[in-house]
Design a protein around this nucleic acid. Structure first.
Lengths: 151, 151
DNA sequence: TTCATATAGATGCAATTGCATCAATAAGGA
DNA sequence: TCCTTATTGATGCAATTGCATCTATATGAA
């Protein structure tokens, strides 16, 4: 049987984790808004598509990468396409699906978001923890991933 | 002038932080739903009100504690009240405001949520990191708080 | 007192999200 | 081939959230 009662240390670490990450994300979203830029989720998708290169990605491949539900990806892509940041291509060997590719203005938008996003990360992470501490933090967090081997 | 370009270590730690906390919270929300229980936000409010005791809290005092916007608190309290989990009392020396107090069924609901929530924390934190590592994690996260002294 | 400003909380409306389901194609067994 | 089931992606509808604004009371200066 599984342990059902968390230790005080686990509770404290959990509370910090949830609270701090929410604060960090929220402040970053605020910074983006203040600069008239779209939400972080847009960056995530543009980033994945930029990494994927010319071949693009199928929408279902984005689901795990950006941690969105299927319908979330579907609608986010619709908005990105409406803004001309991505383009959808039919895929030859599967009549159901499509391939999504980032456009030139998509890359441009990604750069503009990163200018703000990257500054937030530098300001809130580099300015507060040493490179060594950042590595330790990433390593500890890595052990909390679920399932333990993914991400 | 402020540094605007984050280190690779900062980017890696940030990515892990955001991703892991989202996964953890999402899976906890799923567990609550699977047990027919309300979202985590309800627990947060019930927890704060339980800690506050008989005196209760003013709605505006909940804003920073549960990291919700003013209208978010207003509407969440309305739902909690509709479910009989909290009660609103007029406050004598300020005709604008009210005091919110947890009810008996509110305390009961808090217990029922904790049975699931606490198990999630134990399973995802205690089972993966030692008490010492949990302390280290909490300490590193503490340095990311903003402003550095609050929380 | 009187008026300007600040604070507490609620709410109309638009945008977003979640849930359930749908349509269309694919895959695989009888 | 035919039929059942699985997969891909979209969408109608309800619930939630964000934004802007509103009402009501409080506070403080003139």
């Amino acid at each position: 049987m599984t342990k059902t009662s968390p230790s005080p240390e686990a509770i404290a670490a959990w509370a910090r984790l949830v609270r701090v990450s929410r604060q960090l994300v929220e402040r970053t979203e605020d910074a983006l808004k203040a600069n008239g830029l779209p939400p972080l989720a847009w960056y995530d998708v543009l980033h994945e598509l930029a990494e994927a290169g010319e071949g693009g990605l199928r929408p279902f491949e984005l689901i795990d990468r950006v941690l969105l539900a299927q319908y979330g990806v579907s609608r986010l892509l619709a908005r990105l396409e409406a803004d001309g940041l991505v383009e959808k291509l039919p895929v030859s060997d599967d009549g159901r699906g499509q391939t999504v590719r980032i456009t030139a203005s998509g890359r441009e938008m990604r750069r503009r978001i990163w200018a703000v996003y990257g500054a937030c990360i530098a300001e809130r992470m580099d300015a507060r923890l040493s490179a060594q501490d950042l590595k330790t933090l990433a390593s500890l967090l890595g052990r909390l991933r679920d399932p333990p081997a993914s991400d």
